[in-house]
Design a protein around this nucleic acid. Structure first.
Lengths: 171, 171
DNA sequence: CGCGGTTAATCAAAGCTTTGATTACTACTC
DNA sequence: GAGTAGTAATCAAAGCTTTGATTAACCGCG
C-alpha cells in the first residue's frame, strides 16, 4: 500500500503502519480505535446533517438543541448546555438564531434574574416533531448495517468508553 | 426518571423513552445508537483537543491535516481533503492558518497550474512528531477503558458502520 | 446594610465549516 | 485552433465553537 493508492478508509491502515515504523513507542491499536471512531462519527453526522437538517434550513447543533428541549421540556440555558453537551456560549449563540427563527422562546427567569428560561415555541414543537421522523429514518438506515446483537454490543462498548473518568469535560 | 434529574448520559435513556411515547413509529434502538456514538465521540474529541492540541496552539482540524501530510507525504490540496475527510474549502482555509504559522508549505503544482502541492515544513515535521506522542498517550488513556478484545470488537463494528453505502459523502 | 466572591449570560475575536459564486486553468470536441 | 465543459482553488457570507473578558445578579459573611 503506497501513499498514492490510499483512500479515506485505507488511510487508517497506512497511518497505523507508518506511525509504528517511525515512532515505535506508540500504541497502534489505541490509535486505530480513536481514528476509526472519529471518522465514522463524522461520516454519520455529515450524512444526517446534509440529508435531513440542512434542507430544512437547520444546522445539526440547532437540531440538537431543539431536541433537548423537546425531550426534557423548558429549562435554563445552562442546563440545556449540560444536557446537549454544548458550551454555554454555544447555546447562547444558537438560541440567538433559533429564537430569531421563531423556534425557541427565551424569557428571563422569575426566580433568578440572571438566568433565562428556554422553551420551544408552538412552531418549534411542530417543526421538531416533523423533523424527527425523517431524522430517525436516517438513523435506521445507519443502524440497519448491523444486526440487533451487533447494535447492542456497539452501544454497550461506546457507553463503556463514554463512562471514562478523569478526562476533560466541557463546562 | 423525571426531566429534573437528568444528566448528560441519562439524557439518552430519557430521550429514547419520551420519543417512544410520543412517536410510536420510530426505532428507539437506532436512535440510541446514533445518539451514543455522537456523544462519545464529542467527548473524546473535546478531551483530546483541550488537553493535547489547544495548549500547543493548534486546533484538532489543524492536527488532522498535519497528520495526514505526515502519514502520506506531500500531496495536492484536493487529495488532502479526501484523505482527511474535510471539504476542499476547509482545507484551503486551514492551510492559510498553518502556512502562516510556518508548519505547511504550499507551492503551485508544476504539472497542473490550477493545483497546489502541500507539504510539511521542517518545523511542521518536528512539531507533529513531538505532538503525536502526547496525542497517542491520550488515545491510550481512552482505549485503556476497554480490554484488547473489546477494542477489537469496537473497531470492527465501527468499521462495519463506516462501510455503509448509499449515504451522502463530503465532496 | 455592605462588601467580596460566585454564578448566568453575553460580548468579542479568532478559527473552522458550510453553501454558493468566482477565477484560473485543463481537457474534450468539433 | 476555438469554443465548451469540467476541475482546482479561492472568495464571500453565514453559522457554530472556542478562549478570554465583561456585565448583571445572587449569596454569604461580617
Amino acid at each position: 500500500m503506497t501513499a498514492q493508492d490510499l483512500d479515506f478508509w485505507s488511510f487508517v491502515d497506512a497511518a497505523v503502519e507508518r506511525t509504528r515504523e517511525r515512532l515505535p513507542g506508540i500504541d497502534p491499536e489505541a490509535m486505530r480505535l480513536i481514528l476509526t471512531l472519529y471518522r465514522v462519527t463524522n461520516m454519520v453526522v455529515y450524512d444526517m446533517e446534509s440529508v435531513v437538517h440542512r434542507p430544512r434550513g437547520w444546522s445539526y447543533p440547532g437540531f440538537r438543541l431543539l431536541f433537548t428541549l423537546w425531550v426534557a421540556g423548558p429549562m435554563e440555558a445552562k442546563r440545556a448546555a449540560e444536557l446537549s453537551g454544548m458550551s454555554r456560549q454555544a447555546v447562547s449563540a444558537l438560541v440567538g438564531t433559533l429564537s430569531r427563527d421563531g423556534l425557541v422562546s427565551k424569557v428571563p427567569d422569575v426566580k433568578d434574574r440572571r438566568a433565562v428560561r428556554l422553551s420551544l415555541t408552538t412552531g418549534g414543537e411542530e417543526a421538531i416533531s416533523a423533523a424527527f421522523s425523517t431524522h430517525n429514518d436516517r438513523e435506521q438506515l445507519w443502524a440497519g448495517t448491523l444486526s440487533a446483537e451487533e447494535r447492542d454490543t456497539l452501544v454497550r462498548l461506546l457507553a463503556k468508553l463514554g463512562a471514562r473518568e478523569g478526562v476533560r469535560r466541557r463546562r
